[in-house]
Design a protein around this nucleic acid. Structure first.
Lengths: 130, 130
DNA sequence: CGGTATCCGACACGATACTG
DNA sequence: CAGTATCGTGTCGGATACCG
């Protein structure tokens, strides 16, 4: 992964640190649930329970876990309303929205190549288990 | 996930099928190793062993597993040279290269927001465990 | 060299139950 | 309603060994 050094002299230790950080972030972000959450949120503000139904198939636990991770990385903002019953809103931050655009591109890619991929799978199956 | 129906009347069963397929593909593709492999391949043709060292940290097993998956979905082409010792070349197909461009965008995103994220993490840590 | 198979530990994930 | 904790299991993923 290419991480440009922007500040001062590109000290080698700094480069290595930035790279391992990049890898870490990439691992956080490049996972199914995180991307689906980001995509579901979009420009909207959703509560926990809304996200729960929006991102279908996700469990209570995975949702909280991923939301924490996204909050930690500054991609979503978590707003707690001290009401009863409690209400917690989630919104993408600017960096989160920027990431979302790349996820959108990935979704477009999926839609555009759906047919080709399905076909490839059939040919692969024929090729391997005739 | 939005999957447009392109052929004929958008029969509801077809829509559901396309959507579940899209989810499946998305799950295949939205994972750390797959994306790192695609990114490493780029425009080049690499042998198995070259990929092994290029995608650092990946195990023999994960590499074969993911390469099979990518081949099955028609994203990489696998070319076996019947020599001894054997030699197997991997190259991105056109759809694979298209996907790679979106991965590039994601890498750019990572590089661009590195500092902001690192900072977010510190603030998160202070906020939660003071 | 590249691929497959086997074993085994780690942990991802779901289900459940309990708090504020 | 949102979050945390606990427990059980299935899957992931590494290490190793063996074939073509």
């Amino acid at each position: 992964m290419v991480t440009q050094q922007l500040s001062g002299l590109p000290d080698e230790a700094n480069l290595r640190r930035a790279d391992s950080l990049a890898r870490e972030i990439f691992s956080d972000v490049a996972n199914k649930w995180a991307l689906l959450i980001i995509e579901s949120l979009g420009e909207r503000t959703l509560r926990f329970s809304e996200l729960r139904t929006e991102v279908e198939g996700i469990s209570h636990k995975m949702l909280t876990q991923n939301l924490r991770m996204l909050e930690r990385n500054g991609l979503v903002e978590r707003e707690v309303h001290p009401t009863v019953p409690p209400r917690v809103d989630y919104t993408l931050t600017p960096p989160g929205r920027a990431l979302r655009e790349t996820v959108d591109v990935m979704c477009d890619w999926t839609a555009r190549h759906l047919a080709h991929i399905e076909e490839s799978r059939v040919r692969f199956a024929e090729r391997t288990a005739p």
